[in-house]
Design a protein around this nucleic acid. Structure first.
Lengths: 197, 197
DNA sequence: AGCGTTAATTATCCTTTGTTAATTTTATTG
DNA sequence: CAATAAAATTAACAAAGGATAATTAACGCT
């Protein structure tokens, strides 16, 4: 199923793991292709799938009563994606996971690997490293809401993820920043006119 | 150092651990008392200490250039507290950790227990559970910024943590919600007048 | 290339928040 | 308990964001 190149790639992703460790994991994983616009996880689903994105981009969003969509999270290459509602809290997903681009991921069932992760110290340690880094990332996002204005948040996003903003429509970026698309448009105008002077 | 009651308490906190597991952990831990207003971790510190709060309340805040303080996090009884900058990213803390009440915690050096956690499957598993729950908590906070208005965020706080808001000055709650104390005061007024009708 | 759809911008108006400062209320402490 | 300090509220004004609708620009598709 997997080429030698793939295996080498994952040896690198899961630094510190031996080849057998990686093979044990990969044996339980499979590749999934998701065309752009397709829903990966619908809201209400209780799924333990955990995916590593090889290519593409997934948007996590909330659908409001009135039909409006609010984007909560974007995930792309070399990141993990999973319904945290289901994996962490064992509840149905409140959100919709949708591919914004043709997406390729390596998927596995967390409930099936959990036991293995719990009993292999190298895997446990690596899992904890990944979880902790996700926590740091999330805390940093909270910081940005508490410490920065919407305009500063947008500038930070442009600065930190210049490649991502070109792949995602502004209306999704806006709600990700906690503002409306109209407001983001005004912010962009403000920035353009102030940097001109 | 620890009473039988204490040990029984921690057997309960660290559910799934055997008595020897818990004793191994507690052997490396010590109790720390922190008077109200004292700084636990100053900004710039690189500390691996990880503490479990038995009693009291810790505020994590950022000190702006102009002297203004912005509260990022509150932690209280039965929660862990640590400089995530230092523990996760191995960097000096950007924030100040201060006791808002007389606080008692059980403290240990994460760098000293890490090896033990990495090699005991039950400890690894439990650590991961704790980390994941902190992640879920942080993600939920991000949600509140993206999905709710400041007023709704305040109402949610009042609803979810009624006991905490009575222990913390409003000015700290305000910045925690991403708004100014003046604005929080107006929100409170608005709520009071609308619930009266 | 042209048509139709979707996204982005702009305009208007209204609401909310930020800022600063004054005032009142609540805590703290000698 | 009175004096003082700190916190919370209120006021006034400016700046920014939300809502809605109209217009323009960009995109997707045959």
């Amino acid at each position: 199923m997997l080429t030698a190149e793939e295996i080498e790639f994952y040896l690198n992703v899961f630094k510190g793991l031996s080849l057998p460790d990686v093979m044990d994991l990969l044996k339980l994983a499979h590749t999934r292709h998701l065309p752009a616009q397709d829903v990966y996880i619908p809201s209400g689903a209780s799924t333990q799938k955990l995916a590593y994105i090889r290519k593409g981009l997934i948007r996590v969003y909330h659908l409001k009563e009135n039909g409006d969509e609010v984007t909560l999270m974007l995930r792309w290459e070399n990141q993990f994606i999973a319904s945290h509602d289901s994996i962490i809290l064992n509840k149905p997903s409140r959100f919709i996971y949708q591919a914004l681009e043709d997406t390729v991921m390596l998927e596995l069932d967390y409930s099936k690997v959990q036991h293995m992760l719990d009993h292999n110290p190298r895997l446990s340690s690596l899992r904890n490293t990944f979880t902790m880094h996700m926590l740091a990332e999330s805390l940093e996002r909270v910081e940005s809401f508490v410490l920065l204005s919407p305009e500063e948040r947008y500038l930070q996003l442009v600065h930190d993820k210049p490649n991502i903003i070109n792949r995602v429509p502004d209306k999704y970026l806006a709600t990700l920043l906690g503002i409306t698309p109209v407001s983001l448009s005004r912010i962009r105008k403000r920035i353009a006119s102030s940097s001109k002077r």
